[in-house]
Design a protein around this nucleic acid. Structure first.
Length: 499
RNA sequence: GCCGCUAUCGUCUAAUGGAUAGGACGCCACGCUUUCAAUGUGGUAACACGGGUUCGAUUCCCGUUAGCGGUACCA
């Protein structure tokens, strides 16, 4: 950093529409990465200048999600609706300078003008009726208390160039730029005014935002010029897309970060995933910690193309992060899902084998016991919420399943029944204390060998009987968790089912 | 309509004026295995099209096409 250069300052500036959009998360993340990489500041600014669209609790929702995913911002969040007088002051200043003007046109008239223009196949722009009002005309309207807005007096000639870090120079003809409203009739600023004034006041050095803002950037640059301020640098991020390539939206899947969190996507997976939609700091690596992302971050490397949100890859990545968790962490992460599902309510799963561990009981269920269950599914989990379905059969007394699944390959009903009967007799003789995975495995495998069974002929029906599932963890680990009594019970049930 | 942006496997991406265009997800096959998963190995699949520039273009330029974004007293 040279002696003269200012400290890097960026901001994330969402509107509180009720939830944080996944695209917003990516924008926030890139701002964060850029700030951290450059030892700068990352500011949160709430752009709630549309009274009709602000949702109660919207601000809190955004802050909560940012906290949950660990994107820490510097300073207290700035709330634009609390800064109304500032924007008004600056709007008036522009009027005084002759760079903006009062407009008394009603929305009805504006709509008429627009319709007429559409009918004639012309551009839909304000017709500048009030642009050159005399002071007399103006005073007349003011006296009548006609509602007004303040509009920017956009130059009618020339070109405004945006120098974008990601896209290079983009030019816009001034004559195609509308005389933008800066201050609305309700006294609130529009996005354009508030954004420019705040970025100036908050000493923002780099505006990193989504590509949808690129077309309004010349308006912003014109505003900086009108004020006599130096514009920040701009970087317009490629959009996040639905699979049909339209801008990522609800209707085609979840769009709220909160929804992903609820389903059991881990914050680190979400950040990792979203970071890679736009660029990759290296050629081979796919899994990045936040620190690694910071280290490798470079605005110039971001590509220009929109990125389709590919949930399958997110699922894979989330699985990677789940497998990296320690068992203790994972159990804690799964706990809310167990609780919500009611799986832990003892009435549903009464006598279960207990080892009362030092961690104690949890709503009637021993945590060590729960740990064993979670351990079995760790490598199968893609989302935390799947833990419920995956482990359901541990908590139930009666399993409901089609007896057909008990039948392995070319065996028939009778074969399976006989096999299970033999297994039952054998297991009955095994002492309860030997219902430990390794021990059971050795005993049963010996038994299989001694009786010249094919392993699958015995183990498949056993596993299916214990789980009631086509696919599940192996029979020995399930047996250990269920304990002798339940194991025998389930095998008897299976035999009965086979008729 | 007008303005703007963009174009590498189905998807996310890497790289390059000269390479068999690399990785990941997905999918397929095989190995491991009692199933599933995990894991290992291998495979599938891309430079939108047409002109230039150049000894040589996926890469640079122009155009076409397509996609997307914007076109509000919404952000």
């Amino acid at each position: 950093m040279s002696f003269f250069s200012r400290k890097i300052r960026v901001r994330f500036a969402p509107s509180p529409t009720g939830f944080l959009h996944i695209g917003g998360l990516r924008t926030a993340l890139y701002n964060y990465l850029f700030a951290r990489k450059n030892k700068g500041d990352f500011i949160l600014r709430i752009e709630d200048t549309d009274q009709t669209r602000s949702v109660p609790g919207g601000i809190e929702a955004i802050i909560e999600v940012l906290n949950k995913v660990g994107l820490k911002y510097d300073e207290e969040p700035y709330i634009q609706s609390k800064r109304l007088d500032i924007y008004k002051k600056y709007a008036l200043e522009l009027v005084k300078k002759g760079k903006a003007y009062y407009c008394f046109c009603s929305t009805e008239r504006l709509e008429e003008v627009r319709q007429k223009q559409i009918g004639e196949g012309k551009l839909t722009m304000y017709d500048k009726k009030c642009r050159d009002l005399t002071e007399k005309q103006r005073n007349k309207e003011t006296k009548k208390r006609t509602p007004y807005v303040i509009r920017l007096k956009v130059p009618e000639k020339g070109v405004t160039a945006v120098d974008d870090i990601i896209r290079g120079e983009v030019q816009f003809e001034n004559k195609l730029i509308d005389d933008q409203v800066l201050l609305k009739s309700d006294g609130y600023p529009t996005y354009h005014l508030a954004n420019v004034v705040d970025d100036y006041l908050m000493k923002i050095t780099h505006v990193i935002r989504a590509e949808e803002w690129l077309p309004s950037t010349p308006k912003h640059i014109l505003l900086y010029k009108a004020f006599g301020w130096k514009p920040p640098k701009f970087a317009h991020l490629p959009l996040l897309l639905n699979s049909d390539k339209s801008k990522l939206s609800k209707r085609q899947g979840d769009v709220a970060v909160e929804d992903y969190l609820k389903k059991g996507y881990l914050p680190e997976a979400l950040l990792n995933f979203v970071a890679l939609m736009g660029y990759n700091p290296s050629a081979e690596q796919e899994v990045y910690s936040l620190e690694e992302l910071v280290r490798g971050f470079d605005l110039e490397k971001i590509n220009k193309t929109g990125a389709v949100f590919n949930i399958e890859k997110l699922d894979w990545l989330n699985g990677v992060y789940i497998r990296k968790k320690s068992l203790d962490e994972l159990v804690d992460l799964c706990l809310p899902y167990f609780k919500e599902s009611g799986a832990l309510i003892p009435t549903i799963s009464p006598p279960i084998p207990r080892e009362v561990g030092e961690q104690g009981e949890l709503e009637g269920v021993d945590k060590n016991w729960l740990k064993k269950i979670v351990a079995l599914e760790q490598e199968r989990l893609k989302r935390l919420d799947e833990i419920i379905y995956l482990t359901e059969f541990f908590f139930k007394d009666k399993l409901n399943y089609d007896p057909q699944i008990l039948i392995w390959k070319k065996m028939n009903r009778e074969d399976v029944k006989n096999t299970l009967n033999k297994l039952l007799l054998f297991l009955e003789k095994i002492p309860e204390g030997d219902f430990i995975r390794e021990k059971l495995e050795r005993l049963i495998k010996d038994f299989i060998r001694d009786n010249k069974f094919a392993a699958g002929d015995m183990l498949w029906p056993m596993r299916a009987a214990l789980s009631g599932r086509q696919a599940s963890p192996g029979p020995f680990e399930i047996a250990e968790i269920l304990g002798k009594e339940k194991v025998l019970q389930r095998i008897r049930d299976a035999i009965n089912k086979l008729g």
